[in-house]
Design a protein around this nucleic acid. Structure first.
Lengths: 182, 182
DNA sequence: GTCTATAATTCGATAGAC
DNA sequence: GTCTATCGAATTATAGAC
């Protein structure tokens, strides 16, 4: 299904037809339905899987005895490694969750908010312990997450991939120290 | 057309049908074609317009006698003001450019790369003048832009809007100083 | 400018043979 | 599991009356 994910990433979920998916797999359309229940369920299972991975990762970090700063570093590291290993899954998570329907969409948004709240709590605790400077929690949370969310495109969009170890150093430095002056 | 933009943002361009657009305007479908040539041209003109605004803004900054640090601050400020005043246009720019076709898509990507290269040149010059610390230019460029790109959602997704002046302070501080420790 | 009606195509999904 | 054939609904867009 890796080739299907790539296809969906390039055209977008809604613009990718079952015929596109079938021909990409060298199947006739009808045969695809021997592997999936519907186009919608394909999206749902992809999103559930990658979403689970992010949540499992952050839950382990939250349950650790790390300090807030260590938790944030660990979060950045885990996030980058997951993105580097599954860039197309991450791309789908970033771009196509809007096409979920009804309760699936509602649940997705609730879970995403849970994730963001966990990041917020790390930052809040870090400020309280004076490991981080005082700043608006909401802006800090979205800024940190945004600094990680663009990375998938460097793995989906070009041939020469970035070294995840060096990436982690550079992005961590940016998140902790910014461009350099204030 | 403001209400149309909002509709497209909520459902995504591909999932928004001409019938959706028509009923949103209290029209019958056929009548919408008295105002636009096609669904595709609607997307193209929206994207061209907002894209032009970003480019006009950065070109003025590039042509100024500001130092790299001043240029970056000015860029952040202009970017946030534009996002706060036209969040749905910015949302479309972030989310739906993929649905451009052929040469329109090619041109869009070329222009976007031009924009990113201008930001890169500011950062490169800033490092050379030791206004910014030494770091990977590409990562720095995407990190800075990512720190700005999430903001539209705080204007499209909720009732209580953030104060753009305070936002600018908080995001500037994050971009220049990060979370606080290294 | 706005409508009714409809053309022409494409879509997701299914039936049923092999 | 894979196919051919096809259904029924939805889609963009147009023709032409008012």
């Amino acid at each position: 299904m890796a080739t299907t994910l790539k296809l969906i990433h390039e055209k977008g979920f809604k613009a990718t037809t079952m015929r596109d998916i079938a021909s990409n797999l060298n199947f006739e359309v009808a045969n695809v339905y021997n592997y999936i229940d519907s186009k919608q369920s394909l999206l749902e299972s992809f999103l559930d899987d990658i979403s689970d991975e992010f949540h499992l990762s952050i839950d382990n970090i939250m349950a650790s005895t790390y300090s807030p700063e260590e938790k944030l570093r660990s979060l950045i590291s885990a996030n980058i490694q997951l993105t580097a290993s599954k860039p197309y899954e991450v791309a789908l998570l970033m771009n196509d969750w809007r096409h979920l329907n009804g309760n699936k969409l509602k649940d997705f948004l609730k879970r995403r908010m849970d994730y963001e709240n966990k990041v917020s709590s790390i930052i809040t605790e870090g400020i309280k312990r004076k490991q981080f400077r005082k700043m608006d929690i909401e802006i800090a949370t979205y800024s940190v997450l945004a600094s990680l969310r663009w990375l998938y495109s460097k793995y989906t969009d070009r041939v020469t991939k970035l070294n995840p170890i060096e990436i982690e150093k550079q992005i961590s430095d940016f998140i902790f120290a910014g461009i350099g002056r204030i």
